[in-house]
Design a protein around this nucleic acid. Sequence first.
DNA 1: CTTTAACCCTGGAGGC
DNA 2: TGCCTCCAGGGTTAAA
Length: 275
Amino acid sequence: MPELPEVETTRRGIATVMPGQILRQFIVHESRMRWPIPEELPALLQAHRVLACERRGKYLLIRFEHGTQIIHLGMSGSLRRVTLEAPLRKHDHAEWIFDEARFLLHDPRRFGAVLWHPDTAGPVLAHPLLAHLGIEPFDPQFTAEYLYKALHTKTQAIKSVLLAGRAVVGVGNIYASESLYLAGIDPRLPASRLSRARSVRLHGAILQTLNQALESGGSTLRDYVNAQGTPGAYFTLHAAVYDRAGEPCPRCATPIRRIVQGQRATYFCPYCQKR
DNA sequence: CTTTAACCCTGGAGGC
DNA sequence: TGCCTCCAGGGTTAAA
């Protein structure tokens, strides 16, 4: 589920509650995630104050006075507010308990992670998992020219390059297909062959796609803040090509094609999207 | 350095 | 019903 808009929506949700609060208890129910949740983490965090809730790519960063929790939601994870009394469900692997709020990390596939980076180890953004991430899409420095320069050295198919997250973060498998559709670009095009003019289109398409998803995430946020626990309508509902193999292209009615690139599904319109 | 494929894990969908 | 196979929006890691 979580692509960048979902992660950002989650960040906004926890950021309305956690900063300034003292974490009374951090409890681990299942430590076997992408990497083990450090055993010493509950003791390290107990009675410490949250300073801020940030995000880098799809990683959530919960800053404390002495270090930062690095959280990834993987493929099936969610971090949601629940009532103080709410019973644990299957796949609730960790919980954050504050005086008047409680949060559960729920992740059936356990591809997610909860790590700890002490301040003594240096800036958290220098952490090996974060150090090589591409630019944030909403960073003003992310321009069409920036995108052009990041792509023109890569020989791989443009869809795979977008997905890799080294040029720009946050374009997951859904949004990669959707952005390329919006920009009229064939996902198989070698990234290096994208012209400046088409970089402008792609840049706009990426921002439009992510922004649209972020807006629809607002309903998720409302649910989130109200502790209803049900994910809102995700962007999937408005997808033009994603998961629509065989269905007519919204623009020209040509059947949408599904191909596999780097072991991930890609959807595109063979007529509207050009090499 | 780049590129490819295997892998971590559970659950839902669809075929038989 | 049940059993089997395939597929899933993430990203790291090892191998080529």
